[in-house]
Computed example of a mutant assay.
Amino acid sequence: MADSFDDFLPEALRFRSPAPLIDIGANLTHESFNRDLEAVLQRARAANVTKLIVTGTDLEHAEQAVELARRYPGLYATAGVHPHDASHWNASMARDMAALHKEPEVVAVGECGLDFNRNFSSPQAQERAFEAQLGLAAESGLPLFLHERDAGKRMQQMLHAWRDDISQAVVHCFTADRATLYGYLDLDLHIGLTGWLCDERRGHHLRELVGAIPLERLMLETDCPYLLPRNLPAKLKGRRHEPALLPWIGREIAHWHGIGEARLAEATTATATAFFRLPHTDSEGLQHG
């Protein structure tokens, strides 16, 4: 039986942002959301997370993301092929992706990029698929939703070659070092931060970098169901991350940025609204079920 809207999150994890938030990276097509998606969206709304960008990481999940965006007001989709799946890229997929990019629910090309950490697809296959998707972004005029791991130098080289042809790009779930961050900012890119910053084992270095990211370049995301913050004040059964916990990430980032929660929420929401060209009115946000 699915958990109800009210009883899934412990009281200590029922956060509410002082200003509306946008989660720019929610993997809501993941099977863990199949049983209670409407309750997940209700909890997000209760937390004042008013819009969600549903990540499409391959053709199947991009199509599912578009369907969710059609069904639920306040949801939008990205459409791309993750570097892990780059070996599957072919001409047919390129045509299908180009068609998806014409759908009004799709607000970015991606998730695409380079991942030389795990190399589930070869670096050569990753670069080929990424180059093709840079071309699709230039053709469609849509912004890019980027993934990069241990490939900052090569990513910057490829983006530099295309920078005059693409509109905007966000490096989602940024986890790299200061030099890589500055390289992306020099390319006039946006940066997405997640609960990785809340991980004292792996994300501690990000706390010193937060203040270097201008607010007009910064956006927030959960990357749910992954990257559950490790420093939450209570245990979460199942350990599945969800958008309702985004205010906790915002609180942490605001602290390390040296500003108030409300200011961070207002700034990052304004940045995401402009970047993804979303409606400005809250009437276009998540609705109560």
Rank of each mutant, 00 (worst) to 15 (best):
D7P: 10
R14H: 04
R16M: 01
A19F: 04
I22W: 07
F33R: 12
E38S: 15
L41T: 05
L52N: 04
L59P: 04
A65I: 08
Y72E: 15
G74Q: 11
L75R: 00
L75F: 00
Y76S: 12
H88V: 05
R95D: 15
L100E: 05
E103A: 15
P104V: 09
V106K: 08
G113M: 01
S122R: 00
A132K: 04
L144P: 00
D150E: 15
D150V: 02
R154A: 10
M158C: 10
H160D: 11
S167C: 09
V170N: 13
V171A: 15
F174N: 06
F174T: 05
F174W: 04
A176M: 05
A176T: 09
T180S: 13
L181A: 08
L189Q: 13
T194L: 09
C198H: 02
R201F: 09
L206P: 08
I213W: 01
E216T: 07
D223T: 07
C224I: 13
P225C: 11
R230D: 13
K235G: 09
R239D: 15
H241W: 02
A244R: 08
A244Q: 13
A244N: 12
W248M: 09
W248K: 07
E261C: 05
E261F: 00
R263V: 07
A267L: 02
T268W: 00
L278T: 06
Q287L: 07
G289S: 01
